[in-house]
């Protein structure tokens, strides 16, 4: 049975925790708004890039000289998973669900006899995956999603990926990230980024084939790394927005739970106090009776 003093201390500490979680919730809410704006602003470029790529791919005849980023290596032996998580915790199941999906993918791919490599973006994912798959992590990048996501960091990642691809370190790359659906829901998404899979690849070519300047292949050679960078950039932005959303709802829950806890503790405290007073009274009365 905790003493009155203990209960009082508990209540005080839960109260200050509640203050912290309430403040974190508000910080996350304002960061979320900014992150959403950034994600929104990047969308026009991404959709237009996709459209242009569709036009290019729709007219493409795969040949020897077709860039391998779109044609693939012809193999599917080594799979690279790019796992995007946050750098900081206290955001509910945000990182946990990504890591769970990554583990599932790794197990599945290994059952199929493929070799799996991991590239971790974000400190949390790296820390969680290092326990079981330390040997598979070939690179870890962090401090990307903390502040405003810069396009240059996505570009750097894309350059690294292209260099690794050209060096034959992997055949297929998948991006595992949280897609921002709404403030309370982030959807774990797995997307193939290398080789590129344009939506319109199977469709018939557009009515008028455009001219190319310089030729189609050199344009593709330039646009494909660019496209990769923008895909990563969008994923990073979505993930950053999702992180703030997840943190906001986690902190909202925490604040509410702390309130419940304070109510329970206060009730407990009052009860013990009452019991204590009653006990003292009985002692006094029975003492007086004995005299």
């Amino acid at each position: 049975m905790p003493s009155l003093k203990d209960l009082k201390n508990r209540i005080a500490s839960v109260k200050s925790t509640r203050k912290i979680t309430a403040a974190m919730k508000m910080v996350a809410a304002s960061k979320l708004r900014r992150a959403q704006e950034h994600a929104e602003a990047a969308r026009p470029y991404a959709t237009r890039m996709a459209r242009m790529l569709d036009t290019l791919a729709g007219n493409l005849v795969v040949s020897e000289s077709t860039p391998r980023l779109i044609a693939g290596t012809g193999k599917q032996d080594t799979i690279l998973l790019v796992v995007v998580t946050s750098d900081r915790g206290l955001c509910g199941a945000f990182n946990g669900s990504i890591v769970r999906e990554a583990r599932r993918q790794i197990r599945q791919l290994e059952l199929d006899g493929k070799q799996v490599k991991l590239l971790c973006v974000g400190r949390k994912g790296r820390d969680l995956l290092r326990r079981d798959y330390a040997d598979k992590i070939i690179r870890a990048v962090d401090d990307v999603t903390n502040r405003r996501v810069a396009f240059s960091s996505a570009d750097d990642l894309a350059t690294t990926l292209v260099a690794m691809f050209d060096a034959g370190q992997f055949d297929v790359a998948h991006l595992v990230y949280n897609r921002f659906k709404s403030v309370i829901s982030q959807v774990v998404t797995v997307k193939q980024i290398v080789p590129v899979k344009p939506a319109a690849m199977q469709d018939s070519a557009p009515a008028v084939a455009p001219e190319f300047e310089p030729d189609e292949e050199s344009i593709l050679a330039q646009i494909l790394p660019r496209n990769l960078a923008i895909q990563i950039y969008t994923a990073l932005l979505e993930s950053a927005a999702g992180e703030q959303g997840a943190r906001m709802s986690a902190m909202d829950n925490a604040t509410r739970n702390a309130g419940d806890m304070i109510n329970k503790l206060t009730l407990n405290y009052n009860r013990s106090r009452q019991a204590y007073i009653t006990k003292e009274l009985i002692e006094i009365i029975s003492g007086a009776e004995a005299v």
Binding site: P210, E211, F212, P214, I219, Q222, I223
Partner: peptide, 10 residues
């Protein structure tokens, strides 16, 4: 200008 032939360039 309007009605330009379709073209993709770098």
């Amino acid at each position: 200008m309007a009605g330009h032939t379709p073209i993709i360039t770098t």
